[in-house]
Simulated scan of single mutants.
Amino acid sequence: MRNFLLLLLLFTPAALFAQITITDKVVSVTDKKPIANASVFLSNSKVGNMLLKDGSFTLSNVKNGQYDLVITCIGFEPLHQNIFVRGNDIQLPTIALKNKTSLLGKVKINGGKRKRDYKRERYIRIFTREFLGRTKNAAECKILNPDVLQFEYDESTDRMHAT
């Protein structure tokens, strides 16, 4: 009996300070494809990681408690989910992120045909890269009506304004 109490006292602190692991996979709600390179973290803690190419993640060294799991990725709505950690590793069900829709303010449409303008083509490439981003998800996006975009470029400030 005495040895049992000694063993119990030795292992109690280890059980109280056990480090938990949270694992999951994140996909797009529209096509169910894995989302890579998104940020995942537990707010009010120092625990965070990036999603792998297959959309999976692992958060290690999580302590017991209640957390707000936050997943963010460009092109998707941020996700917040309450997590309760109580001594066991957690395998969450697959999470699906919603695509984020960006609305343009003002669109001015001009009629008539345009001659080939190499500066304009360059401006469209710059605009697309800056507006959509440079991620794998952005590479799958396309501006369907680039002909309605108008550009003003100020060489003195090296700034481009698009409407």
Rank of each mutant, 00 (worst) to 15 (best):
E77S: 06
N49V: 00
L59S: 01
G105Q: 06
K136L: 05
K100E: 14
H80M: 09
I124T: 12
L52C: 05
C141F: 08
G112H: 10
R116S: 13
T128Q: 11
G111I: 03
A138C: 01
L132P: 02
T135D: 06
Y67V: 08
P78A: 04
V85M: 13
K142A: 09
I109P: 03
C73S: 14
I109V: 15
K136W: 03
T128C: 05
G112T: 06
L52K: 15
R134H: 09
N49Y: 01
K119A: 07
Y67H: 10
R129L: 09
L104G: 15
K106H: 10
T101N: 08
R125K: 14
K119F: 10
N49L: 01
L92I: 03
D117L: 04
F57S: 00
F127E: 11
Y123C: 05
L103H: 08
G111V: 04
V85H: 13
R125C: 09
L59V: 01
R129C: 10
G111M: 11
N82H: 10
G75R: 03
I95S: 06
R116C: 04
L97T: 02
F84T: 14
R86C: 06
F57K: 00
S56I: 03
N137K: 04
E140Y: 06
I95G: 03
R114A: 12
P78V: 02
K119S: 12
C73P: 00
T101V: 15
R86A: 10
E130K: 12
K119G: 07
R125Y: 07
R134G: 10
I71C: 01
F57R: 00
I143P: 06
Y67G: 11
Y123Q: 10
L103E: 05
F84E: 14
N99Y: 07
I71R: 01
N137G: 03
S60G: 05
N64S: 13
G55T: 01
N88T: 13
I83R: 05
K98T: 09
K63A: 15
C73V: 01
V107C: 07
I71S: 01
K119V: 07
R86Y: 12
P93H: 05
T128R: 14
N88C: 04
Y67W: 13
G105V: 01
L92M: 12
L79H: 11
A96T: 02
E77N: 11
Y123F: 15
T101A: 09
C73T: 02
D54I: 00
G111H: 06
N49P: 00
E77I: 03
R86Q: 10
I71A: 02
E140N: 11
S60C: 03
D68E: 15
I90T: 05
R114C: 05
L59N: 02
R114W: 06
A138W: 02
R134P: 03
L69Q: 08
E140S: 15
K108Y: 10
Y67N: 11
I124A: 11
E140T: 08
F131Y: 15
E121W: 06
E130F: 07
I71L: 04
N64G: 07
D68L: 14
K136F: 05
L79S: 12
V62F: 07
N137S: 11
G75V: 03
I95H: 08
N49F: 00
V62N: 07
F57P: 00
L104T: 11
T128N: 07
Y123P: 02
Q81R: 13
R86N: 15
K98V: 04
G111F: 08
I109A: 07
G65E: 13
G133N: 08
L59I: 01
Y67P: 09
L59R: 00
I95C: 05
F131T: 08
G111W: 04
F131N: 07
